[in-house]
Design a protein around this nucleic acid. Structure first.
Lengths: 351, 351
DNA sequence: AAATCCATGTTCAGTTTTCGGTGGCGATAC
DNA sequence: GTATCGCCACCGAAAACTGAACATGGATTT
C-alpha cells in the first residue's frame, strides 16, 4: 500500500524545492493567503505557517489565492502564450526561418525563448527550428524530391549549410540517406509534469517525464536499436497517444490501445508484456512478476527490465511494488509513482 | 567599543548553561573552592556564591581547583583519548569495520561512544563509520576504480550490501553519475569552542562553531546549492585551514590564504568579498559596509548577508559592528565576537 | 547529609543493515 | 562473434545496531 506523505515529508519537499511532487499536492501559506506548487521558487515558508491540500480546488475553497510565481492553476509546464504563438507560426509555415531578428520584430527577446527551450526541450530555439525543418526535409527526400531543391525549399541559405545540418542530425550525408528510421518526438503536459513521447511509423516507442534522469540514455538506446534519428514532429500514433493519455488522466481510460514499438531483448519484451496485463488500479510485486514469468529467482532481473521500460504509464511499470508493499524505485520519481497509483485506485471503481 | 558583561549577565550565562561563553570567562564557587567553565552541567550555584575570572590562571592562583566534570584546564571540547584512538584506527584502516564487539574488545562501551557521537556529530558512531567509508568509496569510484573492488576495499563483504549503503547516502546507485559533490567535514577545537569545517575540492565552504543554532540550516543550504552530500572526511584544504586557524588563534596569522568556495547570490558574494578586506584588528560598521557597496540604504541587506556567511573567522563577519560601536549579533554568540575582537586588538601591534 | 544533575552501564524490543543468492544486460576483451 | 565482467528499480533471513528506560554512582552545591 502506497503510504501517504506525512506533514514533515511534504514540508521537506517544499524546503528542497522538489519539483517531482508538483501536481501531487499543494502548499498553502497561512500568513499570506497564497498557495503554491511544490517547487515554487518564492521564499520558503516556515513550517508552522503551511497547510497542505491534495487539490487546488480545496485550497481555493479555503480562501487561498494562487501564487503569481508558480501559477498553480495553469497546467504544469504549459507553454506561455507568446511562445505558443511562435510555435503556431512555425507549424503554419514549416519552412520559414525565424532568426533572432524576427523574434524581436514580434516583441520577443530571443534569450527569453532560448531559455524556455533549453529548459523544456533541452535545446536552443534555433536548434529546435533546424530539427523541425530537417524533419520536413526528410519527408520530402523520402518522397523522392531532389536534394538541392529540397534544401533551398526549406530555407537554408546554402547547400553546404544544409549538408552540415543534415549530417549532424542524421549522421551521414543526405544522398546516403536511405535506411534511417525517424522517431517523431513531441512534448506535452500532464497533471504531474511535462512528458516527451516518441513514435516511429510502427508505434509509440517512448513516453517519459522530461526530467527523468535516464532520458538521454533512452534516446541513445532507441537511436541505436532502431537505427533511427529523433526529430520533433507528430504522427498519427502520437495523436492517438495524447488522446488516450488525456482520457487516462481524467480517470476515464483504463486500457491503452495505441500501437507500441518496443525494441529490446526477448526477456525484456516478456517482462513488458506481462506488465501490460496488470489491470488499472491493481498492483503486483516484483516477486509475483518473476513467478508468473516462470523465473521465481529472477526478481532482480525483472526489476532491471522494469527500469528499462521506456513507455511510462502506457506500460504500467508503476504498478509493481517491493514485496513489503514499498514503492521502491521509479524512473519518474517515487512521488509520481504514488500519484499514479492513488489516481488509479480512486478511479478503479467507476465504470 | 565592545562592552564588558555585567555580573548579572554572566550569572545568567551560567544559569542558561550557555556554552558559547566557554573559554571566554570562568566561574568560581566560593563554597566549594571549585571553578568551572560556563556550560558545566553540575548543579547551578547560587549567585551569592560565585565569582568570575577571565582566565583559568586567575582562578587557580586564587585557590580554586578545576571541576572534575567540565575540566576547565583541558582543551575545550577535545575528543576524549579513547575515542581519538578509535578514530585514528579508522583512518589507518578504513576497511576495518569496528563492530560493537570490537569496541568492547578495546575496552570501550559501545553505548558510550555512541552517545559521544550523537552529541558531537549528531549521528551514531556506526553511522559515522559507515559514512566515512562510503566517502572513501566515492573517491575511489570517482578516480575510476571499479565499483566491485571498491566495495570490498572499504570493508563490505557483499556487493549488494555496499550498493544498499551507497544508495541510501547518495540516492542513486554507484554507477549513476549525477554530478553530486562531496563536502568533507571535520570537527576540531579552538580556545573558544569546537568547530566544524567543510570543504569541497574547490575550497573551504564552511567553518562554524558546533553550537551555532543555524548550523543545520547552513548544511541544508550548502547541500542544495552545491548539489552535495556532507560526509565525514578530510582534504588538503581542510588541512591548510586547520593550520592557518591554529596560527590565527596563536595571534600569528592575520591573513588567510586557504581557497574558499562560497556559493550565494551576487550580492552576498560582494558583501563577503568586502568583509575580507577589513584588516585583522580593524572594525567597520554595517553602515560603512553598505556605503562602500554603493548602497547606503542597504544596511539591513548587508547585515543579512553577513549573517549568511558560513565561513566564520576566515571571512571576518565579526569585524562589523553597529554604528554606535555595539557588538550587535553574531552567529557564534556575542561572547565569541568580543573575544575575537579583543584577541585581534591584542595581537594587531606585533610583527 | 540531602538535593541536584548528569554520565555511565545494562537490558531489551524494535529497526536497520548486511549478506548471499539471483538472472539478465551492456560493455569490454579476446 | 562470443566469453567474461561489472552492475543492479529485489528478497528474506540473520546479524548488528538503536533508543529508551532504568538503576547506579560520582561530582557539586546547599
Amino acid at each position: 500500500m502506497a503510504s501517504k506523505l506525512s506533514f514533515e515529508e511534504k514540508y521537506d519537499v517544499i524546503v528542497r524545492r522538489d519539483t517531482t511532487y508538483a501536481g501531487i499536492f499543494f502548499v498553502a501559506v497561512k500568513t499570506t493567503g497564497i498557495f503554491c506548487r511544490p517547487g515554487c521558487t518564492a521564499r520558503t515558508p516556515k513550517s508552522k505557517n503551511v497547510l497542505f491540500y491534495d487539490t487546488s480546488h480545496e485550497a481555493i475553497i479555503n480562501g487561498y489565492r494562487p501564487c503569481k510565481i508558480c501559477k498553480p492553476l495553469e497546467e504544469l509546464g504549459a507553454t506561455p502564450d507568446y511562445i505558443q504563438k511562435i510555435l503556431d507560426e512555425l507549424e503554419a509555415h514549416p519552412y520559414r526561418r525565424l532568426k533572432d531578428w524576427d523574434l524581436r520584430q514580434r516583441g520577443i527577446e530571443p534569450s527569453q525563448i532560448r531559455r524556455w527551450f533549453k529548459k523544456n526541450h533541452n535545446m536552443t530555439f534555433q536548434a529546435y527550428q533546424r530539427l523541425y525543418r530537417i524533419n520536413g526535409a526528410f519527408t520530402k527526400i523520402s518522397n523522392g524530391e531532389s536534394i538541392t531543391h529540397t534544401a533551398y525549399d526549406i530555407g537554408f541559405e546554402s547547400i553546404s549549410g544544409f549538408n552540415d545540418s543534415f549530417k549532424s542530425t542524421f549522421d551521414h550525408a543526405p544522398s546516403q540517406e536511405k535506411g534511417k528510421t525517424v522517431i517523431q518526438l513531441i512534448r506535452f503536459t500532464t497533471p504531474i509534469g511535462p512528458m516527451f513521447a516518441g513514435a516511429t511509423s510502427t508505434g509509440v516507442c517512448l513516453t517519459e517525464f522530461t526530467d527523468r534522469p535516464m532520458l538521454e540514455t533512452e534516446f541513445k538506446d532507441l537511436k541505436k536499436r532502431l537505427n533511427a534519428v529523433i526529430l520533433p514532429g507528430e504522427n498519427k500514433h502520437l495523436v492517438q497517444l495524447q488522446q488516450e493519455l488525456a482520457e487516462y488522466f481524467e480517470g476515464k481510460r483504463k486500457v491503452f490501445t495505441v500501437p507500441l514499438h518496443t525494441p529490446g531483448s526477448a526477456f525484456s519484451q516478456s517482462v513488458w508484456q506481462l506488465l501490460r496485463t496488470i489491470p488499472f488500479g491493481a498492483t503486483r510485486t516484483y516477486k509475483e512478476q518473476a513467478e508468473k514469468l516462470g523465473k521465481p529467482k529472477g526478481v532482480r532481473a525483472v526489476g532491471r527490465a522494469n527500469g528499462l521500460n521506456k513507455i511510462a504509464i502506457v506500460i504500467p511499470c508503476h504498478r509493481v511494488l517491493g514485496s513489503n508493499g514499498e514503492l521502491v524505485g521509479y524512473g519518474g520519481g517515487k512521488g509520481r509513482k504514488k500519484w499514479l497509483l492513488d489516481h488509479e485506485r480512486m478511479h478503479a471503481m467507476s465504470t
